[in-house]
Amino acid sequence: MASNVTRNWTNQFAQPPWRVALWSVAYGSVLTVALFGNLVVVWIIVAHRRMRTVTNYFLLNSAFCDAAMAAFNTLINFIYAAHGDWYFGEAYCKFHNFFPVAAVFASIYSMTAIAMDRYMAIIHPLKPRLSATATKVVIVCIWVLAVVLAFPLCFYSTIRSLPRRTICYVAWPRPAEDSLMYHAIVSVLVYMLPLVVMGIAYTIIGVTLWGSEIPGDSSDNYHGQLRAKRKVVKMMIVVVVTFALCWLPYHVYFIVTGLNKQLNKRKSIQQVYLSVLWLAMSSTMYNPIIYCCLNNRLSPVVLQVQSGLQKGFPVVSFHPCIEL
C-alpha cells in the first residue's frame, strides 16, 4: 500500500546503520516466518485430497494471499520506507501499490466466507452447504472485487525522479481529496465491514454453542462434536481479532496523516510508519501459528511428515490438521 510519507521525504530521514539493521531483522523475521508457515498450510491442503473441504479452500486462498504479500511486498516496502528511494522501476511501483490492497481484501473476505460457512453449518445445519464448485466461484468473485478495488492504485501509480532520489507514489488527480477518500473507502471495505460481519456471525455462533445444549443428550459423540465446533470457532475468532489488532494502527495512520498533512514532514513520522507497517505486515505470519497452537491435530501431522522425510520413506498415512 502506498505511503504518503515518501512523497515528502528528504535527506533528514536518513537513518543510522544500527537502526536500519534492527528494522531489517524485524522485517526479515516476518518475511521468513510468513513464507514458511503459509506455504506449509498451502502444501497441506493442496497435496492431500481429503483436506480439500469448503472451509479449507478459503483457508488456502487466505494463506496464498499472506504468502504472496510477504514475498512481494514486505521486504520492498521496508527498503522503500527505510531509505525513501525507489529502486525497482515503474512497473513494479504499480504492482507494489496494487497488490497489497487486493491481497488483503481477498484474505479478509476469505475469512468472512469461513464465518458465514460456520454460521450456516451451526445455526442452519439442515440447509445445503456450499459445494466445491460454488466455493471456487466465490473465491473467483472475491478476487474480481479485490482487483476492482485496488485498480485505482495501479492506474495512478507512477515514479518521479528527483535530484537525489526516485519516488514511487499514487498521482491522484486531486491529491488531497482523492487520497483521503480512497483510504476511507479501503478502511471501510477491507477493515470495518468484514469485521462487523464476522463479529455478528461469531457472536451468534458463540451464543448458540456455549449457551445451549440439546436437553437430555449426554452422549459422548454429541459432546465431542460440540467441543470440536467450539475449538474451531475459538481458533477463527483469534484469527479475526489478530487481523483487527494488526491492521487498526495502519488504517488510523493513513486517515490521520491524510487529515493533517503537516505530520508527514516530521522526522519521527518515519519511525511511526515503519512501526505500523511492520505490525500490518506481521499479520501475514500469525495465522499458521494460530492453526498450529489451537488445532491439536496440526502438530502430530507436521512431526509425522518431518519424521518420514528424515527416514527417507514416504508418509503413507495422514490425519487432517486444518479440517474444520
Rank of each mutant, 00 (worst) to 15 (best):
R164Q: 15
V144W: 05
L149Q: 05
G199A: 10
G206D: 11
A146L: 03
S157V: 04
S161M: 13
V190M: 09
Y191W: 09
H183F: 13
F151L: 12
P163D: 11
V186Y: 01
T166E: 11
R160F: 14
F151H: 09
P194N: 08
V170S: 00
G199N: 08
K136N: 10
V148D: 08
C141W: 10
K136Q: 10
L162D: 09
S161I: 13
L162F: 10
L153V: 05
C168A: 11
D178P: 02
L193D: 06
R164G: 15
M198L: 11
P173A: 09
V196H: 12
Y169P: 00
I200H: 13
I205K: 00
L153K: 01
I167D: 05
Y156A: 02
V138H: 01
A171E: 15
C168R: 02
L195Y: 06
L153Q: 03
V196I: 14
Y182C: 03
V144Q: 07
I205H: 01
P194E: 04
L180D: 06
L149A: 06
P194I: 03
Y202W: 09
V170R: 00
L162H: 10
C154L: 15
F155G: 10
V186W: 00
C154V: 09
Y182E: 03
C141Q: 10
V138R: 00
I204S: 13
V137Y: 12
C154P: 02
S157Y: 01
R160S: 14
D178L: 04
V137E: 09
I142Q: 00
A184D: 13
Y169R: 04
R164I: 15
V140E: 03
P175Q: 14
V170K: 00
I185Y: 13
P194W: 02
V148H: 09
F155H: 14
I185G: 11
L180N: 07
F151R: 06
I204R: 15
P175D: 13
T203K: 15
V140C: 07
P194F: 01
V140T: 09
V148P: 02
V144G: 04
L189W: 05
V188M: 12
L189C: 13
W143V: 04
P194H: 02
I185N: 12
S157P: 02
L189R: 05
V137S: 11
L180A: 08
P163R: 11
L195E: 05
K136R: 14
M192F: 15
L189K: 07
